[in-house]
C-alpha cells in the first residue's frame, strides 16, 4: 500500500564541522499537499531543502522520499530519485546559453528518447501552463525576474515529477508576479497531483496557498500547523513573524556588550 507521506524526516541533525545548522527536525509532507518551511534568513531552510534533494547528507536522522532513504542512496539511486523531483532555485538558475524552449526541453532531451516533434509539443504545453508559450524563443537575459521564475517552474515540471522543491520562489518579485507565482504553485500542485515543498519567508503569500507550515528558528522547528492554525497562533515567534514585528523572540539587536559600556559612559571617560 502506498504511504500517504511522500516526505518523512525523522530526528534529523545537520551541521558543518562543529557548527550546528539543524537539530532534531521531524517533518512530513503528505502527497498532494503544498508544505511551507518558513523562518528568518539563515535559519537553515535552504539546507533542509538540499537535504531532501540529496545534495547534502544528514549527520544524524533520516530523510525519506517516496519510502527511500535519501542519505543511503548510491549515485544511480539518487539520479533515479531526482528524475522524479523538480527543483525551482531562488533566481531560476536557467541555463543562460540556451533559449527558454531549450531550457524546458533540457531534461526531456537528456533523459528520454522522445522525437523532437514530441519534445516540442511537451515543451509548449509546459510553457503554456505557466503562461509563457509566446516567450519560447527568448533568451533568459531577456526575461524579467518573475518570468524567469515561471520558466524555471515549467522546466521543473517538464518530466511530470511527483515532488517539486521551491527555494524562495517569491524572493525579489513585484506584487503581480508574486501572486502569479503563488497561484501557479497551488494550481500545478492540484492539477498535476504533485507534492510541493516551499522554502520561503513570505508569510502572507504563503498563507494563501499552503496546506501546512513548519516554522524553523535557530535550526529547530518551533511551530507547525495549517494556515488557519498559524494565523490564530499565540506563540510569540509565530506572532512576531506573521505581523512582521521588529523585536521579539527574534531580537532586533545582534548580541553585543551593554550599550553604555561600548560608549564608555561608565565614568571611565578622560
Amino acid at each position: 500500500m502506498q504511504n500517504d507521506n511522500l516526505i518523512e524526516i525523522e530526528q534529523l541533525a545537520f551541521g558543518y564541522g562543529t557548527r550546528s545548522i539543524l537539530k532534531n527536525i521531524n517533518l512530513t509532507a503528505k502527497r498532494g499537499q503544498v508544505v511551507a518551511i518558513m523562518g528568518s534568513s539563515g535559519c537553515g531552510k535552504t539546507t533542509l531543502l538540499r537535504l531532501i534533494g540529496g545534495q547534502l547528507k544528514a549527520n544524524q536522522g533520516v530523510v525519506r522520499v517516496a519510502d527511500e532513504s535519501v542519505g543511503d542512496l548510491d549515485r544511480d539511486g539518487l539520479c533515479r530519485l531526482r528524475r522524479k523531483m523538480g527543483m525551482l532555485f531562488q533566481f531560476g538558475a536557467l541555463f543562460t546559453d540556451m533559449t527558454v524552449f531549450d531550457n524546458v526541453a533540457f531534461q526531456l532531451r537528456e533523459h528520454t528518447d522522445l522525437p523532437e516533434d514530441a519534445i516540442r509539443d511537451l515543451v509548449l504545453m509546459k510553457l503554456h501552463a505557466v503562461g509563457l508559450r509566446g516567450a519560447a524563443q527568448l533568451m533568459p537575459a531577456e526575461l524579467s525576474g518573475g518570468m524567469a521564475r515561471r520558466v524555471a517552474l515549467a522546466r521543473a515540471i517538464a518530466l511530470d515529477p511527483m515532488l517539486v522543491l521551491y527555494d524562495e520562489p517569491f524572493a525579489g518579485l513585484d506584487p503581480i508576479s508574486l501572486g502569479v507565482t503563488g497561484n501557479l504553485i497551488r494550481r500545478l500542485t492540484d492539477t498535476l497531483g504533485l507534492t510541493s515543498v516551499v522554502v520561503t519567508h513570505d508569510i502572507h503569500e504563503s498563507l494563501k496557498i499552503v496546506d501546512y507550515i513548519y516554522f524553523i528558528s535557530e535550526g529547530v522547528i518551533v511551530a507547525e500547523g495549517t494556515a488557519d492554525e498559524i494565523r490564530a497562533s499565540g506563540l510569540p515567534f509565530v506572532h512576531q513573524f506573521v505581523h512582521g514585528e521588529a523585536d521579539g523572540p527574534v531580537p532586533f539587536h545582534y548580541p553585543a556588550p551593554p550599550y553604555a559600556d561600548d560608549l564608555r559612559l561608565g565614568g571611565q571617560r578622560a
Partner: peptide
Amino acid sequence: MKATEQLSAMEMMAV
C-alpha cells in the same frame, strides 16, 4: 554557472 546555481540545477535534474 556555479554562482548562479546552474550547476546545482543540473545536478538536481539528475544530469
